[in-house]
């Protein structure tokens, strides 16, 4: 028996919004420790890694490890049927071929349940090595979303250059070029507005704007985003999900031919 309950549907809705542009389907691995989803997009350029810790759910029971392959488009449709302040309970029997989403209104007067067929997904799991990144940038997530949106008008790809002075985002194409420089915040009044750079070595990497823009769909989950970069390895874009866990996106850099 698997059962996980959250007092508020909003977070699950936001999580689905943050993954459904990149993934059509995914396997939710459920265990005592929580729920994990790891899946690459079809082109194997980016990877989504979602972790939700069991102790942050309002109720969590997982008698046996369970892998549930879900169509994320269908899951998003079902979650749209929940009001933001509804309690959500996800339930599945051991070895079941369906999962049930139950929504309960705050006054307990409306209860709805939606059953969804599970899928057998033959997905590859990737081992992601622990990496000491040369540069780790923390910045407001809205600012990152804005930069990705603005620079995508100029080119398919964006160069991110990080030094100890700051981080520079650049795009250049037929229309012209764009550069946005952010300096490290000198005095932090509000932590969520700060730009903080931890640099071991300067890094310059090029990434496809399309994927970066897809990652920014997670912006409503967290005020801050963390970018971790090292030369010639995938970028990690991380959004914390309050005290529930995190969503990390990995993106392969563009490489010299």
């Amino acid at each position: 028996m698997f059962e996980a309950r959250l007092m508020n549907a909003t977070i699950l809705k936001k999580i689905l919004d943050a993954v459904k542009d990149l993934l059509n389907e995914g396997t939710f691995d459920c265990s005592d420790s929580g729920i994990q989803l790891q899946a690459m997009d079809n082109s194997h350029v980016s990877l989504v890694s979602l972790t939700l810790r069991s102790d942050s759910f309002d109720k969590f029971r997982c008698d046996r490890n369970l892998s549930m392959g879900m169509n994320l488009g269908t899951m998003a449709k079902i979650l749209k049927c929940a009001n933001n302040d509804d309690t959500v309970t996800i339930k599945a029997q051991d070895n079941a071929d369906t999962v049930t989403f139950m929504f309960e209104s705050q006054n307990h007067e409306k209860v709805s349940d939606y059953e969804m067929k599970l899928m057998n997904l033959d997905q590859e799991h990737l081992g992601i090595p622990d990496t000491d990144y040369s540069c780790v940038v923390r910045m407001p997530s809205m600012e990152f979303a804005r930069i990705c949106r603005d620079l995508a008008q100029f080119s398919e790809s964006m160069v991110i250059c990080c030094t100890k002075e700051g981080v520079k985002f650049s795009a250049s194409g037929d229309l012209g070029s764009a550069n946005v420089k952010l300096a490290q915040t000198s005095n932090v009044d509000k932590e969520e507005e700060a730009v903080i750079i931890e640099m071991q070595e300067p890094v310059t990497l090029t990434f496809a704007c399309r994927y970066l823009n897809a990652f920014t769909k997670a912006t409503p989950l967290c005020n801050q985003v963390q970018l971790s970069m090292s030369a010639d390895v995938p970028l990690v874009v991380e959004y914390r999900i309050s005290d529930l866990g995190h969503i990390r996106y990995y993106l392969a850099p563009k490489i010299e031919e």
């Binding site: 590859e124 990737l126 090595p129």
Partner: peptide
């Protein structure tokens, strides 16, 4: 010129 890398060349399948 640059080409798009794939994650398979960085991370191993387990």
């Amino acid at each position: 010129s640059q080409t798009q890398g794939r994650l398979d060349s960085f991370f191993k399948v387990i």
